[in-house]
Structure formats: C-alpha cells, structure tokens
Computed example of a mutant assay.
Amino acid sequence: MNAIFGWSVLALVFLDELLAVAAFGVWGWDRDPRWLLVWLLPIAAMTVWFLLASPKAPYGGPVVRPLAKVVVFGLASLALWDAGHEGWAVALLVFSVVVNGLALLPSIRVLVEEG
C-alpha cells in the first residue's frame, strides 16, 4: 500500500485522538464545576491513552490497547451525545471506527512499528 496513504491514515488517527479529548472538554463545559471538568476530563483521557492505548503504552497489550481505545472513543462519543451534540457524536464514532480500522491494515501497522 502507498506510504502516503498510510501516513495519512495515521495522521487521521491522531486527529481522532485529539477530537476525543476535545469531546471530553465539551462535556465538561456543560457540567459543574466547569472550571475543573473542562480541563480535568481531557487530561484524564490523555493519561488513559498514554498508559493503555498509545503505540508505546507502558501498560498496553494485545487485549488492553484495543479495549482502552473502545472505551475512550465510546465515552467521547457518549459525552458529545449527552452534551446535546448527537450528530457530532455519531460522526465521531463512525470516524473513529473507520480510521482505527484502517490503521490495523498490515501495511499501515508496519509504519507504526518502524517509527
């Protein structure tokens, strides 16, 4: 598969991760105490991602990594839904499934393992 396509997919995966973090911030903005949740929830999501789901996660593995991704993206979509952004929630969920599914292709996984 074309390396440009592979790196484009990986860039979209990174964008997806940023969108998930932003979704937690959106949900926190609608809750009290806003000043705390608007930054605490995204930091919690980033910490979970770093520890469990990133390619070099210290506690990731063949079972933990995919499970953590499902939980983070699922909760991010649920957070958007609960914040009243149903269309964005569905779009984020579909986008997450598609780009993370593409990232599992062997020709794209090789790019991650080389980096």
Rank of each mutant, 00 (worst) to 15 (best):
L75K: 08
A44I: 11
I43L: 15
S8K: 01
P106A: 11
F14Q: 12
G6A: 14
K56F: 14
L104H: 11
L78C: 01
G84F: 00
E86R: 06
W27E: 00
P55V: 12
L105N: 10
A44S: 06
A11L: 15
I43C: 13
A22G: 10
L80A: 09
L40K: 01
L15T: 03
F14G: 12
V71W: 02
R34H: 08
G101P: 02
E86K: 00
G87D: 10
A91T: 01
G28T: 02
L104A: 13
P33V: 02
I108T: 10
F5Q: 03
A103T: 03
G74I: 09
F73I: 04
L10R: 04
V98P: 01
T47V: 14
R31Y: 07
A57E: 06
A89T: 00
G25P: 03
V48E: 11
W49I: 14
E86G: 14
I4H: 09
R109F: 08
A76M: 06
D32A: 15
P42L: 08
G115E: 01
P62R: 14
P106N: 05
W39G: 09
A103S: 12
I4Q: 07
L105G: 10
A53H: 04
L105T: 11
D32M: 15
W29P: 13
D82Q: 14
G101S: 00
E17N: 15
L18S: 13
P66T: 07
I108Y: 04
L18M: 15
L12Y: 01
A11P: 08
L37E: 02
V9P: 05
